[in-house]
Design a protein around this nucleic acid. Structure first.
Lengths: 348, 348
DNA sequence: TCTACGGCAGAAAGCGCTTTCTATCGTCGC
DNA sequence: GCGACGATAGAAAGCGCTTTCTGCCGTAGA
């Protein structure tokens, strides 16, 4: 039925061992023999049995990329970048060829753990966890435990956009400086003269949410400005849309609204428009991430640009072992303030 | 080092066979024995060796989802839906537990084939190909050959948004009626009174591109209206942006522009705005897909809504074997015309 | 009481590959 | 011209699991 290594060996008149060596290319094989084997492979249309190979070699060529929401371009861009970095890693002859697969956790801790177990089962070569994590201590501990077991078993673990696990030396981490980004954004608004700023935050129990919010508060505190109303929601348009009513109810005098990310900001803009309020005339709005559509929003969104693509590529390289983890701790990747048309000095 | 089945067996004082049976749950095991085994599994923190298991059982729990561009919400939404349908399929005790992984081909035929081979290596349980395909005959043949080999080997193959391979009975296919959608959209424009309509198409060699464009032409032909200028580009914002100059150069009297999809339409709108043209005052613009941001564009985009989420879910179910493929050929999934503010009657 | 049978558990044979260890051959140095 | 060594190829022992084939034991039917 299926063609096996021995079939190829028989046809090439060599031993299975030789075929294996030709395919893996880590042992000297005479050029003539190699050609004969390759020809047989070709003729038989042979495909290596992955499980058998992984079993015997105790490793696999799978790299798992875990993301919170694959439908969100924030993750899509990073995952895409990582995946191409990993795919290209297959530079040399053989061996480097890895299969990067992305797994969608939907932000659910259980699914995150399930995927990790599944990846562990498969003896994945590496795992990349993208995006902020839940701050529930139980979940954190469970994840950390699982990751360190995997690391022990030889799986490379890379964190991208998620705080490093304290004390885990096995893990490479790339973290975004969400706090500084939040600070910078709010400082910009303060600089324009805003003093009544509403905030639409993400889910309360996520690191990303907390850090951005903390940055916002730090900027406020530094300027001696009182904190405005804050509403928590999901990282989606609907949350932004819904938050506006609440924010305005809590402080009708708001002159600016900061959103947890660009998608939320879009929802905020929509709601504002529906109320007949102009942006930035009546209220300024700012987002975070600088997703591709943000420049096309009307008005174009002021936001904080995160190097999503670059970070994805770096995460991919770290996972491949092509690039070494920055020694001596990871300094966070900064975000860049991008000022566009959705923010302006408050009226009057 | 690593805990194996035998370790568990030893601790539970049963044979490895029994442990395997408990874990797979497809053979009668006395309740007391089962509990003993489960307890040992727990205590030893045992994780099944996937490769070994796949090797012995000649199947794996991997489901591959191939997409053209994971950073594009069009694919993100479908992939996400498919993945959750597959994840939930793990309803019953054991066995149903599948790992859905998404693979980003970047629209490259080679990478598509590479991923397929890798998935074939892993003896994937199923493969879902999402989105239109390249129309190159060589590639089509290669893909079809590979898919049918995989199908023979027991991998379920599902096509979602891609035309079925003629004569391949193994393959379930879900196709979007891009042609009808294109027709409907252009008819809408014609109905408003437009007769000089530009078209920004996707890459020329993709099925999706061709079908949408054909629908457009059919509508034009049916109304006896001459075809306007057409420009091909990628399915991204930049292409839409760049196309405007060319379109307007070819016919400065254009009153409407139809874009290959919403992302392209956004680029078109941006370029128009930069030229000081108002939408829909000076020109109407229409997109395709109805991605989440389209409703928030200003003006909100007229477009054709495709049931991305539903289709993804169905594709996932088909891959799981939970849902049977529609017998007697697949009738295409229709798109729904969504009229919003970016289209209006041409001026004067 | 004896036989038959159903319900469980174990033994053991692989699944298809990798990899150590061993064997062979040709060639080089003296 | 002889022993040794480098370069290749083969034999065979697993990797950790699944599953068929047996076997045991207890109960039910006669």
């Amino acid at each position: 039925m299926t063609v096996t290594l021995s079939d190829v060996a028989a046809r090439a008149r060599v031993s299975p061992a030789t075929v294996s060596r030709v395919l893996n290319g880590n042992y000297p094989v005479a050029a003539s023999t190699r050609e004969r084997v390759l020809k047989a492979v070709e003729e038989l249309d042979y495909v290596l049995n992955g499980p058998a190979s992984s079993l015997a070699a105790a490793t696999s060529d799978l790299v798992g990329v875990l993301v919170n929401d694959i439908a969100d371009p924030f993750f899509g861009i990073m995952a895409s970048a990582a995946q191409s970095a990993i795919g290209e890693g297959a530079s040399g002859r053989a061996g480097g060829e890895k299969l990067a697969v992305v797994c969608n956790t939907g932000g659910s801790p259980e699914r995150e753990l399930t995927y990790l177990t599944l990846l562990q089962r498969q003896r994945a070569a590496a795992v990349i966890l993208m995006g902020g994590s839940l701050e529930d201590p139980a979940h954190l501990a469970a994840t950390a435990a699982k990751l360190s077991r995997m690391a022990e078993a030889g799986t490379r673990v890379v964190l991208c956009g998620r705080p490093p696990v304290p004390g885990d030396a096995h893990t490479a981490a790339l973290v975004f400086d969400n706090r500084a980004g939040g600070r910078r954004l709010t400082r910009h608004l303060l600089g324009l003269g805003h003093t009544r700023i509403g905030y639409v935050a993400g889910p309360a129990d996520r690191t990303t949410t907390r850090h951005r919010l903390e940055g916002h508060r730090e900027a406020l505190a530094a300027a001696g400005v009182a904190e405005g109303p804050t509403v928590h929601g999901l990282y989606d348009r609907a949350s932004g849309h819904a938050a506006v009513a609440e924010l305005l109810a809590r402080d009708p005098g708001l002159t600016a609204i900061v959103a947890a990310n660009d998608t939320v900001a879009l929802g905020v803009c929509a709601a504002l428009r529906e109320r007949g309020l102009s942006i930035p005339g009546d209220l300024s709005v700012a987002g975070f991430d600088d997703l591709p559509f943000s420049v096309d929003a009307v008005p174009a969104l002021t936001t904080v640009r995160l190097p999503l693509h670059d970070s994805g590529v770096r995460a991919g390289r770290l996972a491949m072992g092509t690039e070494e983890a920055p020694a001596g701790g990871t300094e966070p990747v900064p975000g860049e303030l991008v000022v566009r048309d959705s923010t302006a000095a408050p009226r009057g």
